[in-house]
C-alpha cells in the first residue's frame, strides 16, 4: 500500500491519497499542472513537504537510494549514460532468459540492448527504459507518459505489461494525457486542476 499524506506541491492544494497493492492510480491534468512533479516527489527525487508511506514505512526511515529501489520513477524522457542500453542495466544477477522475455513482451529483442543509443528510436528507448525499471523487483512503478512516444501497437503491448505488473501485486501511478489509457487501466483517477486557474486576475478589458 502506497500512502501519500498532505503532500505540498504549490500551487496545488495539499494531496492525500492511497493506492492499494495491485491497483493503478492515473494522474491527469494539463501540461504544467504538476503530474511529473507529483511522480518525482513520490520517488523522492525533489525535496517536497509531506509524508509518503510504502507498506507503513515513511520514506525518511530508509535512505533515498533504498526508497527509489522500491519506488521506481520512469521519466517521460529516458536517461542514458552508456553507449549501449546494456551498460545501463544492472550487471549483477541478471536472469538472461527473464530479461529476454520482458523485452519480447514489449516488442524488443536482446539485440536491442547492444545497439548504439543514438540509433534507437524514441519509442524503443522508452520501452527499454520501462523494462530497465522492472529490474530489481520494485514495489511501485511511477510511469510518466509511458505510451506517449509509442506507435499504437507498441503502446498496446506496454499497456498489457502495465496490467501484468498490477496482477503481480505492484502499485502503478501513471501520469498521462491519454484519457482512453487512463480509463482502461486505472482503478482511481486523479485530476489535477489547470495551472494557475485559481489565481487568474481580471485584466479590466479584452487583451
Amino acid at each position: 500500500m502506497l500512502r501519500v499524506d498532505t503532500l505540498r506541491l504549490a500551487p496545488l492544494p495539499s494531496l492525500t491519497f492511497q493506492v492499494a497493492d495491485g491497483e493503478c492510480l492515473t494522474v491527469e491534468g494539463a501540461s504544467g499542472s504538476g503530474k511529473t512533479r507529483l511522480l518525482r516527489a513520490i520517488a523522492d527525487l525533489d525535496p517536497v513537504e509531506g509524508l509518503i508511506f510504502l507498506d507503513g514505512a515513511e520514506r525518511h526511515e530508509i535512505t533515498g537510494p533504498q526508497w527509489r529501489a522500491r519506488v521506481r520513477y520512469v521519466a517521460a524522457e529516458s536517461g542514458w549514460w552508456s553507449d549501449t542500453p546494456r551498460g545501463t542495466f544492472p550487471r549483477d544477477a541478471v536472469d538472461a532468459e527473464r530479461l529476454e522475455r520482458q523485452l519480447a513482451n514489449v516488442g524488443l529483442t536482446p539485440e536491442h540492448l547492444d545497439r548504439d543509443i543514438g540509433h534507437l528510436s524514441t519509442g524503443e528507448r522508452a520501452r527499454l527504459a520501462f523494462v530497465r525499471a522492472l529490474q530489481g523487483e520494485p514495489k511501485v512503478l511511477l510511469l510518466d507518459e509511458p505510451t506517449a512516444a509509442l506507435d499504437p501497437a507498441s503502446a498496446a503491448l506496454v499497456e498489457e505489461q502495465i496490467r501484468f505488473q498490477l496482477y503481480a501485486g505492484r502499485i502503478v501511478v501513471l501520469a498521462t494525457h491519454d484519457v482512453g489509457l487512463s480509463q482502461r487501466v486505472s482503478h482511481t483517477r486523479l485530476m489535477l486542476p489547470k495551472p494557475r486557474a485559481a489565481t487568474l486576475q481580471p485584466t479590466g478589458g479584452p487583451a
Binding site: 542514458w80 525499471a133 529490474q135
Partner: peptide, 22 residues
Amino acid sequence: REKSAIEGRLALGATRWDALQD
C-alpha cells in the same frame, strides 16, 4: 547537461556517487 542521465541512475536506486561518477 546530463541531468536526465544522472536522474535516470538515481531513479533506479543509485547513490549520488554512482550517479555522478562519470
